[in-house]
């Protein structure tokens, strides 16, 4: 299926369908349900320099057509990843990409530098958009200056494909995208979750221990799609689109809006096999429309 192949930086993906960080564990969690080798890539759980216990329970609240989470980057740290998880996942037959997060620029740089040495890790996704940590995270992704400085600092130590994951919690996502492009990002991925909240009216208490959390799922799709379309008109680097994708029609929408590739996120929880169904759906769509390469569709929305 060469016509599904997509290029993101130095990465040659077998197809444009990948899975979003924080929704797919380390891939291993899904191996009972799907053949990981059918995916374009897997973005593994957000990884930080030091281990993190994450936020207190409750961390999740279902909302209409979506969910809020405030996991808070629970992970065992980059050294544990390198020693214990990388050896397990490095031979998976797909691109395994680490999502890197931090509280300071120094954290991001140190984490990225440790990952740069791993042969079979062809790329990282710089998470400057996590809404669930007190320090850093989204703070880096909400101003052009801080987004630019963290990208610049990581670029210096990370020679492989550098993808920057953008926050939708900004006034103008296109200008943030331009600022990380200017500092050498190879691609942008968008969007991370929207800051939201929910209240239990009987108890008059927030549904999340952190009060606010990140909203994801089909309820955010139209906004995410609009943002991908805006960024498509602002940058020349590849775009990985995500936000509420549940089926191949959603995926094609993101591609027509300007995404070179897409990530399936929260819907993996509902249908752990959704990603491979979407690969098949995109392929059938190309057949029906006699399109020889998925790349021809990128930004291919017709205007009135």
């Amino acid at each position: 299926m060469a016509r599904l192949e997509v290029q993101i930086g130095d990465l040659q993906l077998r197809n444009p369908v990948m899975t979003a960080s924080g929704t797919f564990g380390y891939g291993t969690e899904y191996s009972d349900f799907i053949d990981l080798g059918r995916l374009g890539g897997v973005f593994v759980k957000g990884t930080t320099l030091e281990p993190r216990e994450g936020n207190d329970y409750p961390r999740m609240a279902e909302t209409p057509s979506g969910m809020l989470n405030s996991v808070g980057l629970q992970n065992k740290g980059v050294d544990y990843f390198v020693e214990h998880l990388y050896p397990v996942i490095k031979d998976y037959d797909t691109h395994m990409i680490v999502n890197v997060s931090g509280s300071t620029i120094e954290d991001y740089v140190a984490c990225a530098a440790k990952l740069a040495g791993l042969d079979k890790m062809p790329a990282i996704e710089l998470n400057i958009s996590c809404p669930n940590v007190k320090e850093g995270g989204m703070a880096f992704g909400t101003s052009c200056a801080s987004a630019a400085s963290v990208t610049r600092a990581v670029r210096e130590v990370y020679p492989k494909t550098l993808i920057v994951k953008l926050s939708p919690n900004v006034t103008d996502i296109a200008e943030i995208a331009r600022s990380v492009e200017a500092e050498g990002a190879d691609a942008v991925s968008l969007v991370n979750t929207f800051l939201g909240m929910a209240i239990d009216v009987e108890r008059r208490k927030p549904k999340l221990s952190t009060i606010t959390g990140g909203l994801s799922g089909p309820c955010i799709k139209p906004i995410a799609l609009r943002m991908v379309w805006q960024v498509y008109h602002a940058v020349n680097i590849p775009i990985i689109g995500m936000g509420g994708i549940t089926n191949w029609q959603d995926a094609i929408e993101f591609i027509l809006a300007g995404a070179d590739a897409i990530q399936i996120g929260t819907y993996n929880f509902v249908d752990p096999a959704a990603s491979v169904k979407i690969v098949d759906g995109i392929n059938d769509y190309l057949d029906r429309h006699h399109i020889s390469s998925v790349n021809e569709l990128v930004g291919g929305m017709n205007h009135f």
Binding site: F24, G54, R59, T266
Partner: peptide, 11 residues
């Protein structure tokens, strides 16, 4: 959310 260890919500 997921039920199989991916989302880390039910800790």
């Amino acid at each position: 959310a997921c039920g199989f260890g991916a989302c880390l919500c039910c800790i």
